[in-house]
Amino acid sequence: MDGLLTILFLGLVWLAANRLAGEGETVTGQPRVVDGDTLALGRDRIRLIGIDAPEGAQTCERDGETWACGQEARRHLARLIGTTAVLCEGRADDRYGRRLAVCAAGGEDLNARMVADGFAVAFGDYAAEEAEARANRAGLWAGTFDRPQDWRARHGGMAELPHIDGDWIKALLRRIETVWISR
């Protein structure tokens, strides 16, 4: 039992170290919009943390019609950015090597705006913005759609877990350490 707990503890420490390695780094510039939640800025791929937008090939339904919601999410993010430089504050890297970040254009939080406008869903954060979009029947919420993670699962895409704030991981590690020491 002690060996199993030690392995679990070391695994959590390793996970936390990997997830928190780039916390607080900022990147600025004019990005290329890859999709509704991913930017390319120079050689960096940046995944907007806490949100999940439809995949490029994903379609949704609205008023009985199919629409290319994945492509529309990408276009919406591109419109929000326009020709303004973005400032992205990196929180960590995901397992695919993308920087998880909160990005702003013209001082506006793009992550929050994508969810509030209904072109992305909450994915570990931005629940209030999702509730607002749902209440306003904005974007995706004007019809029916599969949550992007469900769509990816059915279409062989990358599996992701909701983005976890590094502070939550730190608190968990402190709790595990407290329990471990008290033994």
Score class of each variant (00 low, 15 high):
Arg43Thr: 14
Arg62Pro: 05
Gln71Arg: 14
Asp93Pro: 08
Ala40Tyr: 05
Thr6Trp: 10
Glu61Ile: 05
Ser182Gly: 08
Gly166Trp: 11
Leu100Tyr: 01
Gly97Asn: 05
Asp63Cys: 07
Asn18Thr: 09
Ala131His: 01
Arg75Val: 11
Ala142Lys: 04
Asp150Trp: 00
Leu20Ile: 09
Leu161Phe: 10
Met114Phe: 06
Cys60Ile: 09
Arg19Asn: 09
Arg19Ala: 14
Trp180Ser: 13
Arg91Trp: 11
Asp109Asn: 14
Val179Gln: 12
Leu161Arg: 15
His76Thr: 09
Glu160Val: 13
Leu15Met: 12
Ala135Lys: 10
Gly24Ala: 08
Ala153Cys: 05
Arg91Gln: 13
Pro148Glu: 05
Glu55Ala: 14
Ala159Ile: 10
Gln71Ser: 13
Gly82Leu: 12
Cys69Phe: 04
Ala85Thr: 12
Gly11Leu: 10
Lys170Trp: 10
Glu89Phe: 04
Gly143Met: 03
Leu8Trp: 08
Leu172Phe: 05
Gly156Leu: 08
Arg32Pro: 01
Asp94Ala: 06
Thr38Phe: 12
Ile169Leu: 15
Thr83Gln: 15
Arg134Asp: 11
Asp94Gly: 08
Asp44Thr: 11
Arg47Tyr: 08
Phe123Lys: 06
Leu5Ser: 13
Leu4Glu: 09
Pro148Phe: 02
Glu177His: 10
Gln30Glu: 10
Asp146Met: 14
Pro162Gly: 10
Ala112His: 04
Leu20Gly: 15
Thr144Cys: 03
Ala68Asp: 15
Ala105Ile: 02
Gly50Met: 07
Gly24Pro: 01
Asp93Cys: 07
Thr178Tyr: 07
Ala53Gln: 03
Ala142Pro: 03
Ala17Trp: 13
Gln149Lys: 07
Val86Trp: 00
Ala131Thr: 11
Tyr126Glu: 04
Ala159Cys: 02
Gly50Val: 06
Cys60Thr: 08
Trp14Asp: 12
Ala101Ser: 11
Phe119Pro: 03
Val102His: 14
Val86Ile: 12
Leu41Arg: 07
Thr83Asn: 13
Cys60His: 06
Arg152Trp: 04
Gly118Val: 02
Ala16Leu: 14
Val34Gly: 00
Met158Asp: 11
Phe119Thr: 06
Thr84Trp: 02
Ala53Thr: 04
Val121Cys: 13
Arg98His: 02
Arg175Asp: 10
His76Asn: 10
Gly42Cys: 05
Gln58Ile: 12
Gly118Glu: 02
Glu108Trp: 00
Gly3Asn: 11
Ile49Lys: 13
Ile51Phe: 08
Ala40Pro: 02
Val13Ile: 15
Val179Cys: 00
Glu177Ala: 15
Phe9Gln: 02
Tyr96Cys: 08
Arg154Asp: 13
Gly11Ala: 06
Leu8Thr: 06
Arg62Ile: 03
His76Arg: 15
Gly90Trp: 06
Leu140Tyr: 04
Trp151Pro: 03
Glu129Arg: 02
Val27Arg: 14
Ala120Ile: 00
Ala120His: 04
Leu77Lys: 01
Leu77Arg: 05
Gly82Phe: 01
Val27Pro: 06
Ala105Val: 07
Asp150Cys: 00
Glu177Cys: 12
Arg147Gly: 02
Asp165Val: 04
Thr59Ser: 15
Ala171Val: 09
Ile169Tyr: 10
Thr26His: 06
Ala104Gln: 13
